[in-house]
Amino acid sequence: MLTFIGLGLFDEYDISLKGLEAVREADLVYAEFYTSCLMGTNLEKMEKLYGKRVILLSREDVEQYPNWLNEARDRNICFLTGGDTMVSTTHVDLRLRAEKLGIETNLIHGASIASAVSGLTGLQNYRFGKSASIPHPYESRRGTRIISETPYDIIKQNTELGLHTLVFLDIDKEKGYMTINTALELLLEVEGKRGEGVMRGTAAVGIARAGSEKPMVKADYVENLKSFDFGNPLHILVIPGKLHFLEAEALVKLAQGPMGFMEKAE
């Protein structure tokens, strides 16, 4: 049996009681934290609460050489991830690999950043369009700095439809955790290159440390928000589309947004 367990948003205490019971009953416990991670804890604290050793897997262990899956043929294995399990395509692929090997799988869900963002900001979840992910820039073989324009295109498409965009920010082993500030600067750089006007004068909402006792939630116009200090990671960004008047009120009162949001609301 292979049980996928979502650990929630911030620390070791976010795991569900059902998940905790499954971990304690497991023969082996694996985890990956390259798609997401719990910033309020570490392996030592997790192992102390769970009463189990947690074996940390690399990207290669999960995506390229998941030989450890064979252990689930005749043993009870748990696979831990930040947030909710199966949100990442990587985890769906892993589950399908297990099924092809004849391994029974089970899911135990955890709190998701997608639903947490709606709760923290007051933006209604059914008004979100396709989400986007902003990777760190990289250098081509010729030494040219390359910025992905796909996130900008997704935001543009959603904005034209009046939909909000949830923007995930890159976690890179070498370059670290992308900040909201960097993400906005990259989007504005793409916009400047194209000579378009999707981002400028647009509302944006930054969320930092969701799931902690004191998460940071701040709404403002893009030009102002890019210099705001959100503190420690993890960060996530929302570019709202058309605002319902209740959403606009929530951004003003819950996220210290400008009163101008109310004037443009429907």
Score class of each variant (00 low, 15 high):
Thr3Glu: 01
Phe4Cys: 00
Ile5Asn: 00
Gly8Asp: 00
Tyr13Gln: 11
Asp14His: 13
Ile15Cys: 00
Ser16Gly: 03
Lys18Trp: 02
Leu20Asn: 00
Glu21Ala: 12
Glu25Asn: 15
Leu28Thr: 10
Leu28Phe: 14
Ala31Pro: 02
Tyr34Val: 12
Met39Phe: 14
Asn42Met: 10
Asn42Gln: 09
Lys45Val: 11
Tyr50Ile: 07
Gly51Ser: 13
Ile55Thr: 15
Ile55Ser: 08
Leu56Pro: 11
Leu57Lys: 09
Asp61Gly: 01
Glu63Ala: 04
Glu63Ile: 12
Tyr65Leu: 12
Asn70Asp: 14
Ala72Asn: 05
Ala72Ile: 09
Arg73Tyr: 13
Arg73Asp: 12
Asp74Tyr: 13
Arg75Met: 09
Arg75Glu: 07
Arg75Phe: 05
Ile77Asp: 04
Ile77Phe: 08
Thr81Trp: 06
Gly82Phe: 06
Gly82Lys: 05
Gly83Asp: 05
Thr85Phe: 03
Val87Pro: 00
Thr90Lys: 08
His91Trp: 09
His91Ile: 07
Val92His: 05
Val92Thr: 10
Asp93Ser: 09
Asp93Pro: 01
Arg97Leu: 11
His109Arg: 11
Gly110Pro: 05
Ala111Leu: 09
Ile113Ser: 06
Ser115Asn: 12
Ala116Cys: 10
Ser118Val: 06
Thr121Phe: 04
Thr121Ile: 04
Gly122Glu: 04
Arg127Asp: 08
Lys130Trp: 11
Ser131His: 14
Ser131Gln: 13
Pro135Met: 12
Pro135Thr: 15
Pro135Tyr: 10
Pro137Phe: 07
Tyr138Glu: 05
Arg141Leu: 14
Arg145Glu: 07
Ile146Gly: 02
Ile147Trp: 07
Ser148Gly: 06
Glu149Ala: 09
Glu149Met: 06
Thr150Met: 14
Pro151Lys: 11
Pro151His: 11
Tyr152Thr: 03
Asp153Thr: 10
Ile154His: 06
Glu160Ile: 15
His164Ile: 04
Val167Glu: 03
Ile171Asp: 01
Ile171Leu: 14
Lys175Tyr: 13
Lys175Arg: 15
Asn181Ile: 08
Ala183Asn: 02
Leu186Gly: 01
Leu188Gln: 05
Val190Asp: 00
Val190His: 02
Glu191Met: 03
Arg194Trp: 06
Gly197His: 15
Gly197Lys: 15
Met199Trp: 02
Gly201Phe: 06
Thr202Glu: 01
Ala203Val: 14
Gly206Ser: 04
Ala208Gln: 05
Ala208Ile: 10
Ala210Glu: 01
Pro215Glu: 01
Met216Gly: 05
Val217Gln: 01
Val217Gly: 00
Leu225Glu: 01
Asp229Met: 06
Asp229Gln: 07
Phe230Trp: 08
Phe230Gly: 00
Asn232Val: 11
Ile236Tyr: 04
Ile236Gly: 03
Val238Arg: 07
Pro240Glu: 11
His244Cys: 03
Ala248Cys: 11
Ala250Asn: 10
Val252Met: 03
Val252Leu: 02
Lys253Pro: 02
Gln256Lys: 14
Gln256Met: 12
Gln256Asp: 15
Pro258Lys: 01
Pro258Tyr: 02
Gly260Ala: 12
Gly260Cys: 05
Gly260Ser: 15
Lys264Ile: 15
